[in-house]
Every structure is written in structure tokens, then in C-alpha cells.
Write a protein that binds this DNA or RNA. Sequence first.
DNA 1: CTTGACGTTCACGTTAACGTCAAGCAGGCG
DNA 2: CGCCTGCTTGACGTTAACGTGAACGTCAAG
Lengths: 134, 134
Amino acid sequence: MDARTEERTWTVGELAGDLGITTRTLRFYEAEGLITPARAGSNRVYGPREHARMRLILRGRRFGMTLAECREIVDMYTGAESSEQRQLTTLLARLDAIAEDLERRRADLDRTLTEVTDVADQCRNRLTELGLEE
Amino acid sequence: MDARTEERTWTVGELAGDLGITTRTLRFYEAEGLITPARAGSNRVYGPREHARMRLILRGRRFGMTLAECREIVDMYTGAESSEQRQLTTLLARLDAIAEDLERRRADLDRTLTEVTDVADQCRNRLTELGLEE
DNA sequence: CTTGACGTTCACGTTAACGTCAAGCAGGCG
DNA sequence: CGCCTGCTTGACGTTAACGTGAACGTCAAG
């Protein structure tokens, strides 16, 4: 019965619930060419591949990337194995650029984090002072 | 001549150029209550205080915060010294929540970064393979 | 005195990323 | 059978964060 190729599938509603988004978002992303689920008749069928792809996209969104940027990256991921030498080279360049950007963001975030915790510490000190004065 | 209180000032255009944004953005932020520059006649005059405030806001924006969130944070920063005990407590709670969020983002970013560098490494391996085969 | 380069306010336009109906089909259930 | 639930495709509405232009003031240079 070919049981080993039986992969889990999701409907729009299921996947949306699973990912914490709405069905509208899934359909919108499809219209924008970010995902291409299979069809059972007219109904969308999402497989594990689409599930992973969506998680990638959503992570991109969390980092403030536009949908176009998300698509670019996800396409690069999925096309990484099948690429020819020339494409691999340009892909590698893009990946390095992205990594560089991410490291900049990381440094930025670290600075912000220490600043925030510093202010929080000042608050704590001020509070203990106030507590001792009265 | 009270020279020690002479602080550097900027016009809209200067500050915009300095921060890499447009004058429209500065005026918009003012209309939204994020900054309140002084005036020389009808012209806006920005001091070091506004400059720093803007850098804070822009950093918030880089992290994908909305202007409302930026305002909240910046207001908290500047109001940190003058606050009373009750306000300090709620302020501290907010700061801790923000720090927690930032740490989550940081972990997320780290995961992404390692993933990207992993894929890049796979690319490099694949490229050296291709180089050896021919 | 006119020409630019800067500033001002007011107001409508734009884009991304969805939300929100509307109208209709398909299947299961009491 | 009627109803409910969940799917479908449009199509229009919405919000944030500015862009863009109009219409005007002001000051220094030529």
C-alpha cells in the first residue's frame, strides 16, 4: 500500500491553526507565489514541505522582512541542492550577505538588550533607595 | 556668555541628513507625538536630546516595532529618573517584559544565523566537489 | 529684485499585508 | 431533508508609515 510515502497533510484551516495564522494569510501567500500547495479537487492540501516552507517564511516576517524578501530566501533554500555551479556561486554570495546582515542585527540587538537591562537595573536601585528612605 | 550650555542644534534638513531619513519622517513623528523639537520662530530646532531620542526610535523601527511601541519605550527611558515609586514599579515590569522579548528574538536570530551559515557551508562543499569532479 | 535653497502647513496618494464580507459548493449528521 | 461546518473564489475595506505636491514665507547670493 506504499505506506512509507504516506506523509501528513493539512487543510488550510488545520495549517493555519497549527501556525497561529489565518486561512486568509495562507491564501494570500499562495496568490503572491510564496507557496503552492497541492489540490484535492478544489481544496488545498499542504504537506510537510509546505509546512516547513511556511515556518521559514513566518520567521522571515518576524525579522521584519517583506514577503518578497521571504520568497527570495525560501526559494534559495529549496533550490540549494539542484543548482548548477554558477547558480551556486551567486547563491553563496547572497547567503553570505544575509549572514552578514544577521550578524549586524545581532550586534544591534545585543546593544539594545544591555541598554534595556541597564535601565531596568537603575530602576531597581532607585526602588531600593526609595524603600530605605521612608 | 554662558558658553557651557551651548549645545549643538540641527534643523530638520540637517537632522534628516544626519540620520539618513527624510524631513517628512521627522515632521510625521512630531505630529505623532514622538518628538517635540523647540522652535525658532516657526522653524524646528533639534537639540542633542532630540537627536538621541530619534536614534532610539529608529532602532526600535529596525526591530520592527510600531511607532506606538517606540513612543512607549522612549517615553519610559526619558521618564525613568522623574518617576514615583508606583510608576517605577510598572516601568520595571515593562522593561523586564521587553528584555524577555529581546532575548527570545536573540535566540530566534541565532538559530537563523546558524542555519544560514550551515546552508552556506553546504554550498561551499558542493562547490569544491564540483571543482574536483571535472 | 529675482532666484534658489531652505523652511512651513495642509491635504491627498500610495504600498504592504492582510481583514472582512459575500455568495456558493461539498459532505456529514440527526 | 435541512442544517452546520469548512472549503472555495472574488472583491472591497483597513491600517501604518510615510511620499508627494500645493501654496506660501524667508533669507542670502548674484
